[in-house]
Design a protein around this nucleic acid. Sequence first.
DNA 1: CATCTATATCGTAATATTGCAATATACAAA
DNA 2: TTTGTATATTGCAATATTACGATATAGATG
Lengths: 108, 108
Amino acid sequence: MGRSKTDHFTEQQNQIALIAKALGHPARVAIIDHLLKVNACIGNAILEEIPLAQPTISQHLKVLRDANLIKGTIDGNAICYCINETTFELLNSYFQNITTHVIHQNCC
Amino acid sequence: MGRSKTDHFTEQQNQIALIAKALGHPARVAIIDHLLKVNACIGNAILEEIPLAQPTISQHLKVLRDANLIKGTIDGNAICYCINETTFELLNSYFQNITTHVIHQNCC
DNA sequence: CATCTATATCGTAATATTGCAATATACAAA
DNA sequence: TTTGTATATTGCAATATTACGATATAGATG
């Protein structure tokens, strides 16, 4: 039905899924990569990096903002975007935990 | 159009997006969590853990397999599933890299 | 062989995502 | 105030995802 039954899962499972989903598009990964590369905040400059129309990029930025992967602060009529380190640290510790656990796994 | 323009992005961006997308559903995160918890391979036992119908779970397992997040080896008429550590290590180093970079970021 | 068990596939309905043109909003600057 | 620049919203078409009943496949077991 295209609708996921979030109430059946734990809060952490829903949270990780939500963040992962937001990263589940190459354009959004490219935006993150760009924000890391320029090592500073940018606004409209993303338009010149990603070959998509302005409304589409605006939409992707919204998805990233809603997932707390990026922060945007208003600077005049532009918006200054940057990585939200808190969420990436959350992801980092989630996967760190998995990889250290997996070592002790005796698999088939 | 519901179709992402993968050719506009780097191979790594597409790869990360693909894996993240596969993790972008709570049921699939729950499957990963379960595989980690039981610390061993299981087959049909996932059905008792996830409150979804068998065809739906089979579909989710396929998504995880296609993204190389899990491996499945045939064991009689059952299938033995387990975490594919290689892909999780890839994710781990990707996010590790981001978090260490982000520290030096002077944001708005 | 008949039957059970485990898993996959098909078909389909409901819903979500992606992309963009057109348009709106909001601040800045002339 | 008019104009330009930056970003968001709306509306819509194309496509993808999610979920499940029904059914198929494949190995195990009686």
